[in-house]
Design a protein around this nucleic acid. Structure first.
Lengths: 355, 355
DNA sequence: CTGTTAGCGCATTCAA
DNA sequence: TTGAATGCGCTAACAG
């Protein structure tokens, strides 16, 4: 932190220029009430304008003991899922006159913890943790401690998606949405099904996979007939998973990817391998990010109102009331069947051997 | 700004717990040098850990006269173009130990100015303005004033894309890229061409349209044969523009959209109208956002290394050196011809009348 | 209504 | 090396 070359003009300078006391200047410029004589008021305003005074938010925060900063920590702003949520969250924050500090962890648990610590140092008024939490004590223990300290100091926080941690949360209906997919595929006659899952250490992934598998079981599809491939939570992950499945001799008529982003990668791989979608393989994703309706075939998926998720979460965390119990806002998920899913072919091919 | 319920632990409390002076505690916890006796040092560290002390960044900033905050102001985080740039910028900022305050203006010039003012109040160390600037004195005059004051006070700023304002800038080669498109279309035999342009008040749009039209002129396509439709800088804009063109009797064999996002909308409209791409109409965009390669037909475009743009810009603005002249970093743009463009049909249809 | 004064939490002189 | 005192820019009592 080097000191900049120039100087900002201070309230004291404005007061001096207007020939009033510091307190008076403070009252007209930053105090809401109009308890200042119009004449002085004008003098101060004029001086401030002339000197182009801008209050020092840091100093204000220090004096007031409260900030207008809110933290937004997400896995990857570059990912359309998170970008859409960020958009809604930022919009609400701005409406509330809050400034957003954004952190992109690139899916590193350590960076996530670091960000919370940084935001704590910034005395952020609230923190939003967006994106699936991680499993494992190396993450949970320090994160729990960070958040506990933060809350103890008066900070508010909330999660988007499940985190195995105490706190308010906005929860997309992952299980329900995935279950709807499972039922739909079963109804379409699919019996041998593959899943391209992100890291199972992520609660979101687990919920989606579990919801899917359970619904399938209820529909009479045995767990053994569901092949789950664990891979990366990204387009590349989906791509890799699909390639692997095909190479192993694709013994499935449908593929569920735990996110649309992964499904996009899978679709590319399937095209490269000459697997027709949905002719040979039905494909379905999750999230309904903006682009997937434009794919060919357009992607079936489960729609989540991402913008709303961001808005709800920011609203939750900016709401001054402090209920005793943790609040959960569930965001409904609804199935959107487009062109990438179809009834299982009458004479399904058994196994393919490419290579 | 209400005061939170709890309290943060302060340096003074740590000092007291460790039974040392405030100054000593400050030295071991936040001063870099090791001018403190190991024994005291340990005591302080232990106390800090036990009390879970986190320095107050606001107070530090006030005392030091410098912040670690950088501002990132963009049109829309939800737009993949901006999201990709944000990603690169945030990554670099984090490497430099800086915290990012993100603002999404939703393309409102007023909000952009407000954000700069807010960041000035936050005493941000640097500000990055991402996205095309606006034309018009109502925007330029106050913005120029904001930035001048900011710089005068020691703040650094830079632009991504042209802004008709003085300052360092990272400039995608919009003219060059658009010219390459113009030449390519001419070579493919296209002579009657349409352009779906974003608001011409935006410098980026003007540069792209001008580069395109000029290259076409150089290739022998008269300005009169280029139909420019001005519309919204969004998917809806592209959609609307394409619908309008078709309704008017599509007298063109190629359509250039000034951004990929617009091209996505246009493609949808064309599909709805039954216009085959590239059979009847070649389509081309600009930016090469991640998704467009997955469309059918895959979209021809001009590729820009978005992540690099964000990185370069943040690097520029975080570089402590202060050259006399404004720096410009040009980001090359290269043509990517995919499946949405083709040679003009031998017997081009003259006019279509739908409706 | 207005001015004076005392902190907010911290880094940093200056003495000891 | 360590501690006491001063100030960063501002708000909020507290007096006038």
């Amino acid at each position: 932190m080097d000191r900049g070359g120039g100087r900002y003009v201070t309230l004291a300078q404005v007061a001096q220029a207007a020939e009033v006391s510091l307190a008076t200047a403070s009252r007209v410029l930053n105090g809401g009430e109009r308890v200042v004589r119009p004449e002085l008021r004008e003098r101060v305003l004029a001086a401030a304008r002339r000197l182009r005074y801008v209050p020092n938010a840091q100093a204000q925060a220090l004096a007031l003991g409260a900030t207008a900063t809110v933290g937004l920590v997400m896995h990857d702003v570059g990912d359309p899922y998170f970008a859409a949520i960020a958009r809604g969250a930022i919009d609400v924050a701005t409406e509330h006159g809050a400034v957003v500090m954004l952190g992109s962890t690139f899916r590193s648990p350590e960076r996530e913890i670091e960000y919370v610590s940084t935001l704590r140092a910034q005395r952020a008024r609230a923190i939003l943790l967006v994106g699936s939490g991680f499993a494992g004590a190396e993450y949970l223990r320090p994160m729990r401690a960070e958040l506990a300290n933060y809350r103890r100091a008066g900070g508010r926080y909330a999660f988007v998606s499940h985190h195995d941690l105490p706190g308010d949360a906005v929860l997309p209906d992952n299980r329900g949405g995935a279950a709807a997919i499972g039922r739909a595929l079963a109804e379409l006659g699919h019996r041998r099904i593959a899943v391209a899952a992100g890291p199972l250490a992520m609660t979101t992934v687990r919920n989606r996979v579990d919801g899917f598998v359970d619904a399938l079981a209820a529909a009479g599809v045995a767990r053994a007939d569901v092949r789950v491939v664990e891979t990366d939570f990204s387009e590349d992950g989906g791509y890799t998973a699909a390639h692997r499945l095909v190479s192993e001799g694709l013994d499935a008529t449908a593929l569920f990817c735990t996110t649309d982003v992964m499904a996009v990668g899978a679709l590319l791989a399937l095209r490269e391998r000459g697997v027709s979608v949905p002719g040979e393989l039905s494909l379905i994703g999750f999230d309904d990010i903006p682009i997937v309706r434009h794919l060919t075939p357009s992607l079936s998926t489960v729609a989540l109102d991402l913008d709303r998720i961001g808005r709800e979460a920011m609203t939750l965390v900016l709401d001054p009331s402090t209920p005793k119990r943790a609040r959960r806002v569930t965001i409904p998920a609804h199935l959107v069947l487009r062109d990438s899913t179809a009834r299982v072919p009458a004479h399904p091919l058994r196994t393919r051997h490419t290579h």
